[in-house]
Amino acid sequence: MPESITPLLAERLDVSEKRARSLLRTLLQELRHRAETDGVQLPELGTFQEQDGVLTFEPSPSLRRYVNQQYEGLSAEALTVAPSDAAAAGMAGADAPDAAPSSDAPVPAEAASDDSDARGDAPPTEPSRSGAARRTSVLVGALLLLIALGGVGWFVYNQTNVLAPDPGSTNPASSGQTAEQTAPPPDTTQDETPPSDSAAAPERDSTYAPNSWAIVVASRASRAAAEEAAERYRIRFDTVEVVSGTVNNETWYRVAIGWYDSEPEAEQALDAQAASLPSGAWTHRLR
C-alpha cells in the first residue's frame, strides 16, 4: 500500500500536514503545467512529461543508481556450469527486494561514479575486469601452489633420500645384476668394482646410524691388497680404514673413507669429493 507523501513532506519541512498539503498543491500545479508544455526535469529525480493526456515519468540516472545502491558494483557473470545448475543458480537469485546483495550478486565490479552516467536501470552488465583479474589470481595461486609443492618435494627428497639409488647399484659393473653376482676377481685392477655384502649389511631403511656409513673406494680379496690400496688414500684422507665383509662365503676387504652418520651425509661427501675418488666409489653402511 503506497504511503502518501503529504505527512512525509510535512515532517521533512517541519510544518503541519495542512501547510505541507498546500505547498505540495502549488508545486504540483506548476509541475503539471510545465509537463504539458516542454516537460519538467527535477534534478536527481527525473523528467515529467505529458503526452496525449498521459503523464509520464522518466527516472534520472541518479535515481536509478540510488534505488540500486545495494547492488552497486555487481556485474553479469559468465556461467560455465551445466544449464540445469545455471537455472538453479538463477532461481536462487530470485529473492526479495530487501535481500542481502551477496545472495544475489554474481560478482562485484567497479562502483558507480557520477550523476552524468547514462547507464540504464541495471548495474554494469559487461563481464567485469574483476572476473579476468580473479581468473589471473587463480592461475597465479595455482602456480605458487605448484612451486610450494615442488619445494616441499625437493626438501623431502633431500632429507629422506628416498629416491637415491641403491648403494650397491653405484657399482658400474652391477648394472642388471646384483653386486654379489658381479664381484670382480681379486686384485685384478686398481679401479674399484667391489661387491656388496648384502648378507652382512644392516637394514637399509634405517639410514641414520652414527658413524656407520662410509665411502667405499676399493674392495680386495686379500687384506694386504686392501691395505695397499688404503695407503694411497691415506695420503689424501684422514679416516681410511679396511673393513672386511663376507659375500657368498667369500671374504672381501673394503677400503672405506668416512665415517658418516647417515646415507645422505655419505652421499653428500661422495659428491663433494668426487674428483678425488674413483668413479666406482659408492656409499655403504659398514657398521
Binding site: Y71, L74, A78, D95, D104
Partner: peptide, 21 residues
C-alpha cells in the same frame, strides 16, 4: 528484478538483480 540467467551469442550469463522505478 532478481538475478537471472540470460543467453546471448552462446554465452550464458547470470545477470545481477536490479530495481527499477
Amino acid at each position: 528484478h532478481p538475478s537471472a540467467v540470460e543467453e546471448a551469442d552462446g554465452t550464458r550469463r547470470l545477470t545481477p538483480p536490479k530495481n527499477t522505478v
